[in-house]
Write a protein that binds this DNA or RNA. Sequence first.
DNA 1: ATTGACAGTTCAAATTTAGAACTATAGTAA
DNA 2: TTACTATAGTTCTAAATTTGAACTGTCAAT
Lengths: 170, 170
Amino acid sequence: MKWDALEEEPCSLARTIGVIGDRWTLLILRECFLRKRRFEQFQSALGITRHLLAERLKKLVRNGVLRRVSYQESPKRYEYILTQRGLDLHPIMMALVHWGDTHMLDERGRPLLHEHKTCGKLFDPVMVCSECGEPLFAKEVITHPGPGARPTDGQPTAQDAKERRDARAA
Amino acid sequence: MKWDALEEEPCSLARTIGVIGDRWTLLILRECFLRKRRFEQFQSALGITRHLLAERLKKLVRNGVLRRVSYQESPKRYEYILTQRGLDLHPIMMALVHWGDTHMLDERGRPLLHEHKTCGKLFDPVMVCSECGEPLFAKEVITHPGPGARPTDGQPTAQDAKERRDARAA
DNA sequence: ATTGACAGTTCAAATTTAGAACTATAGTAA
DNA sequence: TTACTATAGTTCTAAATTTGAACTGTCAAT
């Protein structure tokens, strides 16, 4: 599959995966949320090869998740800052951390605790319904095709995208 | 990096990524939440190669996210069902979808709408604080090392060294 | 006897990633 | 002057992963 195709699919999950859905990118974003901003910081914190790091940062900038900001002239140097679009990834990060906290702990306990500045307490993130405020459970959610669904409906798939490309090519 | 190492890192985000943090795995899980359960269904919905699909399913089973259940004797056939551990990934999926809905829509609108069975309304997922119930924002969350944190947190970076020098100089 | 459905496995070729070295600019130390 | 350090990359080859396509084995139906 060409991964760029993901961003065109009629599926918000696929499109998001197209932007941030690879392992290094997710780890880079972790560092961003931990206030790291510079090339060398990312590289030494993650042990990622410089080649891939440069490539991934470029893609995140291209997708508006990070902004490349000059912080010094001569020699010109840049750092990478989360945009609002990037900050909006926070619920995804929290959800990933929470699953790990719930299912992947060893005997030592949580590597990281989260404090909510607003209320001052250590907390867990909880996903709730925007309408009634109740916690969400998979079995209480029903999906319906929306206006952006594929006309011929079923579920949006990569295979369909490939078929559309092939059809155009033919 | 050896990706297996991720699961041992003192970071819940890294451990979660170690289990579900690659693109095909996330797409397979999307299909699971859309009620797909069989090898052929996954394969034709995603266009993933059979080789990789088999490999990823094995890994998800090994990690307790899916359960391989026989649904027919002679010939013996199996399907893949989300375990509780797997169902607990729902907030991650919803968070990914929501970011796509917010930032990756085209003019046609949302591919998928979500209805909350409990209250009957179409909704968006909202991440709130388990303690005060208020919506969470990245800038209102402070992280502290927990009991499972690495004792000496990584190598001091070159940047750290520079900052220490700067601090002494000031 | 042949075909089709299903859940995989196998293998060569193409793509991606790892690891290491190299480039460029400037400040600091000997 | 020469050398070394810091930062943000780029370039190259070797190793690993992914793709694409074919193949296997079991059973039911025609």
